[in-house]
Computed example of a mutant assay.
Amino acid sequence: MSKVKYYYDRETNSYKKIEYRKGRKLRFVFFMVGGSLLSGFLLLLLYLNIPKLETPKEKALQRELAYMQLQYRSLNKKMAHVEEVLAEVETRDNNIYRAFFEASPIPAAHRKAGFGGINRYKKLEGYANEQLVIEASKRIDILQKQLVIQSKSLDEITSLATKKEKLLNAIPAIQPVKNEDLTRMASGYGMRMHPILKFRRMHNGMDFTAPRGTNVFATGDAVVKKAQRSTGYGNLIILDHGFGYETYYAHLNKFKVRKGQRVKRGEIIGEVGSTGLSTASHLHYEVHKNGVVVNPINFYHGDLTAEEYDIMLNQSSIENQSLD
Results as ranks from 00 to 15, higher is better:
Ser2Tyr: 00
Val4Asp: 14
Tyr7His: 12
Lys16Met: 02
Lys16Asp: 03
Lys17Met: 15
Ile18Lys: 08
Ile18His: 00
Glu19Ile: 15
Arg24Ala: 15
Phe28Ser: 13
Gly40Gln: 01
Leu44Ala: 10
Leu46Tyr: 15
Asn49Ile: 05
Lys52Glu: 10
Thr55Glu: 06
Pro56Ala: 15
Lys59Thr: 13
Met68Trp: 14
Leu75Trp: 01
Leu75Met: 12
Met79Trp: 03
His81Cys: 02
His81Gln: 13
Val85Leu: 11
Val85Ala: 12
Ala87Pro: 02
Asn94Arg: 04
Ile96Ala: 11
Ile106Thr: 12
Gly114Lys: 01
Gly114Trp: 00
Gly117Cys: 05
Gly126Gln: 07
Tyr127Cys: 00
Tyr127Asp: 02
Ala128His: 06
Gln131Met: 05
Val133Ala: 09
Val133Tyr: 09
Ile140Cys: 02
Gln146Tyr: 00
Ile149Ser: 00
Ile149Gln: 07
Lys152Asn: 14
Ser153Tyr: 00
Ser159Lys: 09
Thr162Ser: 12
Leu167Cys: 05
Leu167Pro: 03
Ile174Trp: 08
Asn179Ile: 00
Glu180Ser: 15
Arg184Ser: 15
Arg192Asn: 11
Met193Arg: 14
Pro195Gln: 05
His203Ala: 11
Met206Leu: 10
Met206Pro: 00
Asp207Tyr: 02
Gly220Trp: 00
Gln228Thr: 13
Gly232Lys: 08
Tyr233His: 12
Leu239Ser: 03
Glu246Gln: 15
Thr247Met: 05
Tyr248Lys: 04
Tyr249Phe: 15
Tyr249Cys: 04
Ala250Leu: 07
Gly260Arg: 06
Arg262Gly: 02
Val263Arg: 06
Arg265Phe: 01
Ile268Pro: 03
Gly276Pro: 09
Ala280Met: 05
Ser281Ile: 01
Leu283Glu: 08
Glu286Asp: 12
Glu286Ile: 06
Val294Leu: 03
Asp303Thr: 10
Asn314Tyr: 04
Asp324Asn: 09
